[in-house]
Design a protein around this nucleic acid. Structure first.
Length: 327
DNA sequence: CGATTTTGACCGGCGC
DNA sequence: GCGCCGGTCAAAATCG
């Protein structure tokens, strides 16, 4: 299959296709995916093939956050209890909640402390998530995992405004703001997964206050292509050591690498390798609503976010074979 | 020359 | 109060 295609969106393998409980939920999941990666689906109708590339323990890791989501805040039947191994894993997660001895566990701890999760319609989220004063760490956000190809095919125009080494990860996190519109508050963070360097974790916060650019020409002038003849070998510094990177690293030219001359081709290479998406909200009391959150797996949508989704009415969900994503 | 990237400084939240 | 950490700012560098 073409490598731009969505390769996998993860759910517990022991779950049936009705895991999401309702068509609506599936549809909304689709819409969320569409919002972040609408370009993926431009080609979906013609070649909807997808494949799951994650297996075994990795799947379990990615699934963990899903368990409590579908069993708590929403009107979905609780998922069947995970098989023995998964149960054990969940217990381990709880235990680690009190022992911050790795990057993942620190992340889990923070996420578990702060996040309430929901999965449902925008209106449902509105009802369940009363207006909150959004502290920095309470801002709703969307987390997506993509491969380098998927990263490069993000349709929005992003301008980098910072980069920071992240504790516990050898890879720095890059910060971007939307450059399409002056007042747009949309933000994106890009970091490389420390567990799988081929995967990049995109974190979107705030919403765009303007329509999505229809074409990549909105990026005209922002693409500083550094692939061509940079003489020195670039490195990523995390403050402790330097990590050699390849010339197509998103940290080298993270906004739109190699997009300048061939929009169509690059768009077709968008590639969400592993993805978990959640409708979430933060809890002021810090109650743990997600027992299995790991560092890469939560997704939050604001009402505005979904309002934006509604604007994408021209998109026809029926053109896609969503369930296959999870098979 | 305008737009973007780089990078150290700065700031606020949070835990101890 | 202090230090750590993550997020942002802004000046300088870089690119087309």
């Amino acid at each position: 299959m073409a490598d731009w295609a969505l390769q996998a969106v993860i759910r517990p393998k022991q779950y049936d296709d009705d895991y999401f409980g309702s068509i609506d939920t599936k549809k909304e999941y689709d819409q969320a995916l569409l919002f972040c990666f609408p370009h993926l689906f431009d080609h979906q109708a013609s070649t909807p093939s997808m494949e799951t590339v994650v297996v075994g323990d990795e799947v379990e890791q990615l699934y963990k956050p899903l368990y409590p989501i579908f069993g708590t805040e929403i009107e979905l039947p609780p998922p069947p209890p995970p098989a023995g191994a998964a149960d054990a894993d969940l217990q381990v997660i709880h235990h680690h909640h009190h022992h911050h001895d790795s990057y993942h566990e620190v992340q889990q701890d923070q996420e578990q402390a702060d996040i309430k999760t929901y999965c449902g319609s925008a209106s449902k989220i509105s009802q369940l998530a009363p207006k909150l004063k959004k502290r920095k760490n309470q801002q709703k956000r969307v987390v997506v995992q993509v491969t380098a190809d998927g990263l490069s095919s993000d349709p929005w125009a992003w301008r980098k405004y910072g980069q920071k080494p992240i504790k516990g990860s050898i890879y720095p996190r890059s910060y971007y703001r939307c450059s399409s519109s002056k007042g747009c508050m949309a933000r994106r963070q890009v970091e490389q997964s420390c567990t799988d360097p081929s995967i990049y974790i995109l974190t979107y916060t705030a919403e765009h206050n303007h329509p999505q650019p229809t074409r990549r020409n909105s990026l005209a002038g922002i693409n500083r292509n550094k692939f061509k003849t940079t003489p020195k070998s670039p490195t990523i510094s995390d403050g402790c050591k330097s990590v050699p990177i390849t010339m197509d690293s998103p940290f080298n030219s993270p906004t739109t690498p190699s997009v300048s001359s061939n929009d169509e081709e690059v768009l077709q290479q968008s590639n969400i390798k592993q993805e978990t998406m959640f409708y979430s909200n933060f809890d002021d009391q810090g109650h743990t609503m997600m027992t299995g959150m790991n560092d890469e797996d939560h997704m939050v949508f604001s009402d505005d976010f979904f309002e934006g989704l509604e604007d994408l009415s021209s998109y026809n969900c029926s053109n896609r074979q969503f369930p296959h994503v999870f098979s």
